[in-house]
Amino acid sequence: MLPATLLVVVFLVGPFYYMVYTALTDLSFADASHAGAFVGFDNFRKLMRSDPFFWSSFGLTLKFVVIAVLLEFLFGFALAFLIFRFVASQRLLTTLLLVPMMIAPVAVGLIWRLLLQGDFGMLTYYMRKVGLLAQNGAVLSVPELVFPTIVAIDVWQWTPFVTLVMLAGMMSLPRAPFEAAMMDGARPFQIFRDVMLPLLRPVIALVLLLRGIDAFKEFDKVFLMTGGGPGTLTELVSIYAYRVNFRNWDLGYGAAVAFMIYLVVLILCSVFYKAVYWSNSKPASAF
């Protein structure tokens, strides 16, 4: 226990405090006159008041999180329910479905880049064939398509996660309330609405939160597919933070941006923790 705590302190808490400290300085590797002098809350002031890029990337990220997580949940829940209800031996099927979420996000980015190439992309070819795509260019450089595409790819990758967790939740539901509802005269849909959904509520909350936290942090795939472009059309906060830190080398300000992202995740995280605790105190739940 002690070494674990020490390691975390040294390598996670240490950097964390260092990040907070850096956020209060003007440290920049690009400008020799900014050697890390203490500037108080200047960086945060600038961030809150006069950084349109931060706020637009923040808004874009929220949009990304809400749309992607919602779609993932709808598809994932539907698939989980179909498997739960109609498939007897689920192991092979779920394992096949899991492939997208298990492979490295970097590889996912590359796979989709290949599929969506302008001249020889497999998917672009079929999209043109069925009339979904008019132009001859790469899908990822078409401004109207690029954001829906990164959402779709996130949905492709993470729907299996929702399926997997919801399926586990469904499998662990007690049978008795379902039989009781049958005896009470409920029809299949009523059983679904009045018994299954309420019993699954803690798992649903959990899935939404975990996916929300994760989607908020999205970096690898989008970075590899678009680098945030064209322009800043797909510049999520993580990518913006990367740009400020490792392209502009404006580390003081970059730390402030990183801290803001951390703060949002921390809030989501404590909600997650409460949710788990809240459900732990209820004996009949799925936990």
């Binding site: 950097p15 908020f216 970096f219 993580s238 933070a241 830190n245 995740v265």
Partner: peptide, 9 residues
């Protein structure tokens, strides 16, 4: 759960 980018710097 912390975003890697915020620890990476």
């Amino acid at each position: 759960m912390a975003p890697p980018i915020s620890i990476a710097v």
